[in-house]
Design a protein around this nucleic acid. Structure first.
Length: 399
RNA sequence: GGUCAGGUAGUCAAGUGGCCAACGACGGCAGACUGUAAAUCUGCUCCCUAUGGGUUCGGUGGUUCGAAUCCACCCCUGACCA
């Protein structure tokens, strides 16, 4: 039983520090019914969750199955500093209302995966503000500059003469202090958070909390391009609130190679099942597309429901495999007669008439499924289906 | 505060008086091929009913028949020194 739980928890993890402690916690849970806490921090600046975030959330959900209470920490205080992890950019202060609004949408989305009954939403402002300058300085004494500079992003930035604000040094300390205050048993985060996560361990020791949190790091999920990490700003993400049709299509658009990564980190299938699928594809008995469809279906169904996923699948086949026109397309009314290039722009299919002309010249534009070649074409009154490339459609009513 | 180096299209980056709507790379879009993809090959990639016109190279003014390129001032960024 413990073994099964442990393997589920370990799945996909990039690194675990103090695994013995996790084992012990599970053992206490199974033998004595003792619960424990798992902390994960979230930044309230970006309210839109994507699949990258769900890797972590799913891991939290797995812990919940085995006796954990999740400390869902909203970094409302630390958000004002700016996590130095990755790129540096000065963050703007958020107002209380903005934070509350973000948190609401954040938790609404998160509870699609997490069990709210076993989740405690906590805000670090409530204790960090009370820390005060004295407390902060005492906290800062736990860390030397040399140690701080060991950290990869700092050392790189320091070496390349990229500025580092002193306040950025405080970020890991404050995040670590959160673990002191919350007396967390385990903290999980992305691999890029390693330094911050370990700080929690160190500070728990320094403050005599009586335990040191175990740390579980999840890999960073690659985006649709398969190279960079999934993020909203890079535009390579799948949002959890996206329309089922888009969600399905986006999953299907990833490369075959990346698909296995998604399976491991996002699918509920067991590792054995996934290995079997992979073997099937390698031996040629299974078509990779079929397998990818399963993945797309599973993901879409999780964030919507079976019915929606089914519809998305049918829609996809209709539009792409058979290159038919989607059932639900934008309608635009225009004054006629109208020049075709202009109509394409008005319908939102092209951004300029120049671009429209180029595409017509290349044979990318279809009118009622027929390729058009005449870029001077005028549309008389009537209803038309306009299409640019494979994906962009609009129904146009010309008056 | 001082010294130096820079600011060119979505990004990086050539271009140092006319041949510049501006090389190239990446990205993006489209075509072919496919499994919708990936990979590959090809074309396009400021705007405008267009073999033409308009607006661009941090900003403002100037020199010139002519400026991304020269001059002046200003703004911004980075490095080094303090």
């Amino acid at each position: 039983m413990i073994k099964k739980a442990l393997s589920e928890i370990e799945r996909g993890a990039a690194e675990i520090i103090d695994k013995e402690r996790i084992e012990k916690l599970l053992q206490d849970y199974f033998e004595e019914g003792k619960t424990y806490t798992v902390k994960a921090g979230f930044d309230p600046t970006a309210p839109d969750l994507h699949l990258g975030h769900t890797v972590l959330l799913q891991k939290l959900a797995a812990f919940q199955k085995y006796g954990a209470t999740i400390q869902f920490l909203i970094g409302d205080f630390t958000a004002t500093i700016g996590d130095p992890t990755g790129k540096s950019a000065t963050r703007k202060m958020l107002t209380q209302e903005e934070i509350e609004k973000n948190v609401k949408s954040y938790t609404d989305q998160a509870f699609k995966i997490l069990d709210p009954e076993k989740t405690e939403v906590v805000f670090n402002k409530s204790w960090l503000e009370a820390l005060g300058a004295g407390g902060l300085i005492a906290l800062a004494q736990n860390l030397t500059v040399a140690r701080m500079l060991e950290r990869d992003d700092f050392s790189k930035r320091y070496a390349s003469n990229t500025p580092i604000a002193v306040s950025e040094f405080l970020y890991p300390l404050l995040q670590g202090y959160d673990s002191v205050h919350l007396k967390s048993d385990i903290e999980i985060g992305g691999t890029d958070q390693k330094f911050n996560l370990l700080m929690g361990r160190q500070l728990q020791k320094a403050y005599d909390v009586g335990k040191q949190q175990a740390v579980l790091m999840m890999p960073i999920l690659e985006g649709l391009d398969g190279v960079q990490k999934m993020s909203k700003s890079l535009g390579n993400y799948i949002g959890v609130t996206e329309h089922p049709n888009d969600m399905f299509a986006k999953v299907l658009s990833i490369s075959d190679e990346l698909m296995w990564r998604y399976f491991e980190l996002l699918s509920q299938k067991s590792l054995e099942e996934i290995a079997a699928l992979k073997k099937g594809v390698e031996e040629g008995t299974l078509h990779p597309k079929k397998v990818k469809e399963e993945l797309a279906f599973e993901i879409t169904a999780r964030f919507h429901d079976e019915e929606a996923a089914k519809k998305a699948k049918e829609e996809f086949e209709r539009v792409h495999a058979k290159s038919e026109i989607p059932s639900d397309i934008a309608e635009v009314e225009l004054e006629g007669p109208i020049w075709i290039a202009k109509a394409l722009v008005e319908a939102g299919l092209e951004k300029s008439t120049s671009q429209a002309r180029r595409d017509i010249k290349q044979g990318a534009v279809r009118l009622n499924k027929e390729k058009i070649a005449d870029e001077q074409l005028q549309l008389q009154s009537g209803e038309y289906i306009l299409q640019v490339g494979k994906r962009k459609f609009a129904k146009v009513k010309v008056k």
